[in-house]
Nucleic acid binder design. Structure first.
Lengths: 207, 207
DNA sequence: CCTATAATCAAATCAGGATTTGATTATTGT
DNA sequence: ACAATAATCAAATCCTGATTTGATTATAGG
């Protein structure tokens, strides 16, 4: 009962996915190496042949998640020979699809990033990449405002609100839910695009 | 060096706040009783005179947070002799103010709720209260749609998006930030109210 | 076939941390 | 002032879980 035949060797990606799954359910500190290992049919000790530590496992999960979505969004923004509105709708859809297709890893990015707050090195890296993603959105909004297609909103706040709504999807989405990922993406995109086209209803501020 | 004079006895609220602070920084599993205790000048063992276990401490934190915000929002909804738009703006503002004034507890509600997923009893309670809060929002939106004041959105998705944006505030808000809580609340409320008044920009769905 | 390397496992290490225990001191009501 | 009660602390328990260690077996290259 030693090494499995080549067919069954575990790929790093499988371990990362397994780790993300356990992290999501238990949180970083609550997750055990044994549990992660079991998810890929290994023992705890064997994991150390693939990753040097639990912390590195988390780092890999976060890097994978942020890298994936940033790459996809970036591509869409740069390929954009389309209007800001179309671009925004497209990247929001990509964002949500990514959240849904990689729900475990996405949730880890959102919830477990802070577990690295004490490792300055890694934190910088993480925060930088997160900001880079945010900057992509910011850029699209600003382009739209400059071109007069969007009303002038507070870009900082707007993007935070948008991120909140998008990221939250990975928290509540269920594959067997009422709506498909595409439908969800459309509804949410509708909300934010409408907000960018219409003047605020300051009347509701009260008498 | 035994009991402190009455002046200095710790109130449960102080412990709850301290626990929330540590939970926020380290996560439930990452937090130690010693650390929480130290935050109120106690030793780990002494905490057990106030709360029977770490888990009960978390339960108290969550109950406090959810209870507070639900109470406030509920009051605003029921007192509403005002339009749905005004009501929505008001409760969103209350929600954000609550997130900001109780950032530690609010963050715990958002991030640590899942640590109780395995205690069925408590989970039901928690989920029920969370749903109750969501229902309040839902109710206001539905009223607005019925009255023709809002366009017909998918209420389920809309509320999730709104919650995502509102809850996210406790993640990124910094007291020394560029905008005040009121300004943030107004901007975010503007976004969602605009979305409820304006038809979606389906043109941006592409050619 | 033989050797180096990669992957595994079971079992040991070792530390940290929740919870208990037993003793001690304030406070309060009488 | 006395007894009961509340709050504390320091030190002991005890378990869990990350990481190490040593041995074992498969695979790949020569």
């Amino acid at each position: 009962m030693a090494r499995k035949p080549a067919e069954q060797t575990v790929h790093p990606e499988a371990i990362i996915e397994a780790a993300a799954t356990v992290f999501r359910r238990k949180g970083y500190h609550g997750a055990t190496m044994a549990e992660i290992a079991a998810a890929v049919n290994l023992t705890a000790g064997s994991l150390y042949h693939h990753f040097p530590s639990k912390q590195d496992l988390l780092i890999a999960v976060l890097a994978t998640g942020l890298g994936r979505i940033t790459r996809e969004v970036k591509m869409a923004v740069e390929a954009a020979n389309s209007s800001p509105a179309e671009t925004l709708r497209r990247i929001a859809t990509i964002h949500i699809r990514s959240q849904i297709d990689n729900a475990n890893i996405a949730a880890a990015v959102i919830f477990e990033g802070r577990a690295l707050l004490d490792v300055p090195d890694v934190r910088e890296q993480f925060v930088a990449q997160r900001d880079a993603l945010e900057a992509l959105y910011r850029q699209v909004i600003e382009r739209g405002i400059a071109g007069g297609e969007f009303r002038p909103v507070d870009v900082g706040i707007f993007v935070k609100a948008l991120f909140g709504a998008l990221n939250w999807v990975s928290v509540w989405y269920r594959p067997d839910g009422r709506l498909s990922g595409e439908e969800i993406a459309r509804e949410i995109a509708d909300v934010f695009l409408a907000a960018l086209r219409c003047p605020p209803d300051r009347a509701s501020l009260g008498e």
